[in-house]
Every structure is written in structure tokens, then in C-alpha cells.
Write a protein that binds this DNA or RNA. Sequence first.
DNA 1: ACCTGAACACCGTTCAAGT
DNA 2: ACCTGAACACCGTTCAAGT
Lengths: 214, 214
Amino acid sequence: MKLSRDRILETAVALADSHGLEAVTMRRLADELGVEAMSLYHHTPNKDAILNGIVDLLFLEIAAELRPTEGTWAQQLRARILTARRVQVRHPWAPALIATRAAPGLPMVTYVDGAIKLMHDGGLSYDLIHHAMHAFGSRIFGFVQELDDNGSGNESMAEMAALLPNLVAMLTEVQHDDPDSTLGWCDDQTEFEFALDLLLDGLARAAEAGAIRN
Amino acid sequence: MKLSRDRILETAVALADSHGLEAVTMRRLADELGVEAMSLYHHTPNKDAILNGIVDLLFLEIAAELRPTEGTWAQQLRARILTARRVQVRHPWAPALIATRAAPGLPMVTYVDGAIKLMHDGGLSYDLIHHAMHAFGSRIFGFVQELDDNGSGNESMAEMAALLPNLVAMLTEVQHDDPDSTLGWCDDQTEFEFALDLLLDGLARAAEAGAIRN
DNA sequence: ACCTGAACACCGTTCAAGT
DNA sequence: ACCTGAACACCGTTCAAGT
């Protein structure tokens, strides 16, 4: 069978599944494909591109398992996140790998865009949604800084608006509220405290409602 | 100045601070100390032990900055966590490094023990505290599986009870509630959903209370 | 006892060469 | 065009040798 980018990525996922992420080296991966390590460079620029590729594959797998659900925005978002988790449990290397990615691929950003749509349709303000994204994991929103990097100006913004309407809508509005520089307009400290207080308030309520000191 | 474990660890922290965690290689670290790479092995078994050591240093730094605070358990815990965050912001490599550690050192576990005490003194049940630890970061509680590894039986448990009374109290009680095997008695799925619902409920309340669709 | 230099078994990647 | 082998500049670590 001919070597191809797809075959490389699929083999890399299988290798990470069976032997862990640290087994995914260029030499071992080539071995698994019955080829020399240097052949891989004919279908991918470097190892980092392969790792980005398998993260894309992961989010495509998540997208394929998403089902429309009934209920409130919270119930729908809950189902969505549990689907993502189910897939990641099948690929235990995923969280650590995602954490090391510099810029997220389109499949991951599309997943986020869908989450934003659920919340916005549910009536949440973009400002609150923005805080929520940070609270669910500051990592999942780490791509914000990159948005200006991969395209120069309005053209790519227009393309992106077609592809990721909810994400772009949120970004433009939140950016408008806080007219500082486009880079670093997320206040990490504020977001950290927002998530912290969400958890603390929830715990306090659980403590009052439920069994105090059982 | 003579080479020593302490000098190695302090230099490793300084190197990670100034040039990132990836700059901390045995050769570079030795260079910084004006010594050959192999000399390091006379004061530490391997690189992993050095990395464990600088995580210990980090939590000792956190401990040194903790101040007794007034207020509810939630306010005290909030202050504690913000202190930990302040120190980690000074050492940006910390979160990623902590995530890779297999077993946490005593300084980190002591930090957790203090957090448990705050909550228990505040009237929270150990069961709720246990959920809370997972919610604040499943990683911070990852050492549970290791508890049986590093000591064989009751002796080390007695020693640990003296050093970490709150942690041991919580573990024995939660373990008693769920008399399955000592290993893996934390249901990851349950803990994940607990944290998820805490966040979703908090967001829903924020959406109802605040500006809906601004 | 502590430190050193050469060496080993790995990495990702470059480069010139093959077909 | 696609693939290969040798080579380079790195890793962590072992081992025999120095003092």
C-alpha cells in the first residue's frame, strides 16, 4: 500500500493507542509502516505536523459521534462534553497532547464553535460564554492569541466567519467591549478567579443543601 | 562552591525560569554549574528525581507565602489557591511539569492536606471534600493510586497520619464508604460529571441572574 | 568520595544520492 | 516523484578511569 499522509496519521493514532504517545517516534512510526524514517518527510513537514494531524483526527472522531440532543442549553452542552470525554477515554494520550499544541486545528475550533452556538442559542451573553470557555479549561481557549497569526486581516476573518460564525461573533463582540490590543485581551487572572468562584460557590451550595459533616 | 543536591535544584529552577523547561537538560544544567553532566549523578539518581525535586521546591515556596486568613472556609480556600497561583505564575513551567509527575512529593501533599483541613473545619463532609479535590483539578488528586505503593501497610499509614492528619482522615472515611478495592476506588466518570455539573449549574445561575444576551 | 571523558542507545532532521 | 542511507547535533545514562 502506498504511503500517504492519511496512512501516517492513522498509524500514529494506532501506535499511540497501543504503546503510548512516547512510542510515536519518526523511526518507530516508519517501522510500523514498513518504510524508512526519512520517507515520512515526503508527506509531512515534520513530527509536529503529525502530532497536529492526530489531534485533528481526534476531533473529527468526536464530531462523528455528536448527536443532536433535546433539552436546555446546559443539558445539550453536557451531552456534547461527555461525548468528547468518551472519545478521549479511548485515546488516553489525547489530553496531554492537546495541552502541548501551539495552535488548534480546524476540527477542534469547529467543536468549540458548536459549543458556543449551544450556549448562545440558550440565551447566554457572549461575555458569559467567553468566561465559560475559560472555566471549562483555559487550554481549550488558548487559540485566541493565534487568531491574528494565521491570517493577515479581514479576508481570512471573512472566511472564518462563514466557517465558524458563532466563534467569530463572540470574539468580535467581546473584543469590542474591551478595546485594548487584540493580543492578550483575555485577562488570565480574571478568568482564573471566575472559574474558581464558580466552583467555590457550587461547593458551598452543595454543603448547605446536602449532608453537612456526615 | 561545592556541588550539592540543593545547588542542582536551585540552578534547575533558575534555568527553567529563564529559558524554559526544555532548557533543563543534564548537560546544560551541568554547564550552568560549571561541572560535567555526569557529576550530577553523584547527587541525584536521574533527571526525573531532579524534576521531582523542583516541584517540591515550588510547593515549599507556596507554603512559605501562605498567610492565615479570616472568613469562611471558602474565602480561606480562595486565598490559598490564589497564593498557589501567584507562585506558579512566577514559574510558568510549573503546571505542565506537575502534570507529568508520577507521584507527588511531600510538599505538594502537605499543601493538599491543608486545603482539606480548611474545608473540613468549615463543615464539609469528607465525601464532598473528596469530590471537590477532583473538581479543582483531577490531577491534584492523582496521587491517590500511589498511596499504597510507597509504603507497605499500617506503619507508613501511621507515620502519614501524624504528618497529614486531614488527608488520611478523608481517605479512610471515603474508602470506608466504598468498600471496593483500595486501588482505583475513585470513579473518574463520576468525578468528571460532578465537576462538569458544578460548572454548568454555576453558569446557568449566572445566566439567570445577570444580563441575558447583552 | 567525588568528578571526568568516552561511549552507548536513542532522538528529530538535513543532505546527497539513488530509482 | 518518491524513497533511502549516512550523517549531524542533540538527548539520558553506563562504565571505566582518574584524583
